[in-house]
Amino acid sequence: MADVHAAERAAGRAKGAGAPVSAPRRGGRNLRTRLVEVAFLAPAVAYLLLFFGYPVVKNIVMGFQAYTTSTFYTGEAPWVGLDNYTAVLSSAVFDRALLNTVLFTAGSIVGQFVLGLAIAVFFRRRFPLSGFLRSLILLPWLIPMIAATAVWRWILDTDNGVLNRLLTLLPFVEVRPDWLTSTTLALVAVIGVNIWLGIPFNMTILYGGLQEIPDELYEAGALDGATGWRAFRHITWPMLRPVVTVVLVLGVVYTLKVLDVILGLTNGGPANSTQTIATLSYAVSFRQFDFGQGAALGNILVLLSLAFAVVYLRMNRRAVDE
């Protein structure tokens, strides 16, 4: 995303520089400013084509090819039309993976967003050590993902995990939930860990958004009797809306493609109960060496993100227009 903005800024700058010069005189000078404009654009365009355009196009093409280990040596990847997509869509795991992807994304986003927003609002009030505590919440962000998931695996272990040991210490609790080995609970556990990982991101951006809301609004609202929940409903929420949009769109796009959290915790198991399209794509490509089918799954994932982004941005534009 940052790169896209950089490109837009570069383009804007190029135009801004060119416009006043080209206005009074035309001809050779105009051509020259044109060239300068192009030259300013070129690095960004080259970067985008190289690091975004090429991989995307390559991945789309791979989805239509029988791309296997042999391809790397011989360079031959026969065209197979829609075979990869048929194979992937008709496999026994796909429906489960699609459902898991939706549940995982929805569950993670709702949890991360609600908790992140609650914490951001909480920290809006200043109190002793608030800055220190706020920075502590960023910790999950700083720990390497694989290390974090390894620790969570220990915490969630059925027999010796800290969580279950603590649970048994509580009165009236007799159960030891199989966090990572039950086909129903594993998805819940994975979503829980992903929420923990996502809170800092949501909190930081939402907190930034809250800082932008002028205090005068709250003061004026308080005079009219809008405090507490009503202040949040009628002042904070409407003012925060643009930031919320960004957080949600980015959140969904990031969560759809989450791989490391699931691989580290359950590897997609047990019995495919936490398999998502992203982990399935990884397994098909790098364990079964069927890169064509893996690419097809990747493309389906890209389509999903794209569809979501388009729908959400449209809905949002309509809301703003109203």
Partner: peptide
């Protein structure tokens, strides 16, 4: 031969489905 990774995937999938997948 080279089809082994497919079979290996089938085997562990079946094992998991029988052990915890009901």
């Amino acid at each position: 031969g080279e089809e082994w990774p497919d079979a290996a995937t089938k085997i562990y999938t079946a094992v998991q489905n029988a052990l915890v997948g009901g």
